[in-house]
Simulated assay, not measured.
Amino acid sequence: MDALGPRIKQLRQQANLNKAALARRVGVSDVTISYWESGAIKQIGHERLVALADALGCPLSELLDDRPPPSPKVLQLADTPPVPWHEAAKHSIALPLELLFSATELQRDCYLVTPGPDQDFDFLHHGDLAAVSPTTTFQHIGLYVIEHRDKIQVRHLQQDPTGELRMRGESKTDSDTIVVDASLRVHGKVEARWRLQ
């Protein structure tokens, strides 16, 4: 049952709970939650396990499952549709809240994406990694994976004062900023990005 501590932490993060909130729901201290997650306390009574599963919103069997959680698969992005997360059997990951810039508006369920072989995008170059949450709508200013004129692209989207949606590439010049037309389809919002150094 060595996997119980990391599983508690993973399920707590997926439930969008901090240690104090989980502790209140279970009826223990947040220090106890820390001890459970670190493995310092390995034996948890049945009554507490049931309360923990209930607080985490999962069945007891999921909490006690000794199999390690599946490793997230990195999907390869190509400039030809469809985007890789539209295919069946692709598993999303849950980003830790500390990686999200504004937890009230951003999504935690994401796909890890990197450019495929011989692919390069504005804002996402060979070897870079991005966490992309699927969406079909513009949510707020930021980077999006879009389909425009039958090509998958990564573009910065924002609304101008008149309410028109504008997109630009990485060059940041005014001539690179264009008003979005009806051919644009939003496929995902870039929630976090890691550059190859």
Rank of each mutant, 00 (worst) to 15 (best):
M1D: 13
A3L: 12
L4H: 04
R7L: 11
I8F: 10
K9L: 14
Q10G: 05
Q10I: 11
R12S: 00
N16K: 15
N18P: 07
A20F: 13
L22N: 03
A23M: 04
R24Y: 13
R25G: 02
V28K: 08
V28M: 08
V28W: 05
V28P: 01
V28I: 15
S29P: 08
V31N: 02
T32Q: 13
I41L: 06
K42H: 14
I44Q: 06
G45A: 05
G45Q: 13
L49P: 08
V50A: 07
V50M: 12
A55K: 03
G57P: 12
S61L: 14
L63R: 06
L63M: 10
P70G: 06
P72R: 04
P72S: 05
K73S: 07
K73T: 12
L75M: 01
Q76S: 11
L77F: 07
V83S: 03
P84D: 03
H86S: 10
K90R: 15
S92R: 15
A94I: 14
L95A: 02
L95R: 04
L95W: 02
P96S: 05
L99K: 04
A103C: 10
T104E: 15
T104Y: 11
T104M: 13
L106D: 09
Y111E: 02
V113R: 04
V113S: 02
V113T: 04
D118T: 00
Q119N: 07
F123Y: 15
G127T: 09
L129T: 09
A130E: 00
A131F: 07
T136H: 14
T137V: 15
T137C: 12
T137H: 15
F138T: 01
Q139E: 11
G142W: 02
Y144M: 07
V145H: 03
R149C: 06
V154I: 15
V154S: 01
L157T: 05
Q159C: 07
P161T: 01
T162L: 14
L165G: 08
R166P: 00
G169H: 05
K172W: 13
D174W: 10
D176C: 06
T177H: 08
T177S: 12
T177Y: 08
T177R: 14
T177W: 11
I178L: 14
V179G: 01
A182G: 02
R185F: 03
H187A: 04
V190C: 00
Q197V: 09
